[in-house]
Amino acid sequence: MSFLSFFTRSRSAPVARDRLQLLLAHERALGGGADLAAVLQKEILAVISRHIAIDHDKVVVKLDRGERVSTLEIDIEMPEPTFARH
C-alpha cells in the first residue's frame, strides 16, 4: 500500500454490506427455485426459434441485477436472411 493510498483508502465493509443486501434480495425472491435467467432464456429462445433458425452458440445472455431495475439482455445473431415462411 502506498503512502498516499493509506490516507485515501475507502472502507470495504460498507461495500460488502451493500453488495450482500442486493444479492440476497434477489436470491430470496427466487426462493432456491429455478434460475430465472435460465428459464427465461430457454422460453424466449423457444419462441424465436419457431420463426428463425437460431445457432445456439451465437446467443449471448447477460443478466444485471440492479437495486431498482434488473435487465436480462439476450443477444441473438441473426442468420443469413432465410426467414421461415408460414
Binding site: A13, A16, R17
Partner: peptide
C-alpha cells in the same frame, strides 16, 4: 478491523 471499517460490523450482519 470492524472499527476500521475493514470488516462488517455485528449490526451489518444482523440487519442482513
Amino acid at each position: 478491523r470492524a472499527a476500521r471499517g475493514d470488516m462488517m460490523k455485528v449490526e451489518d450482519v444482523l440487519e442482513i
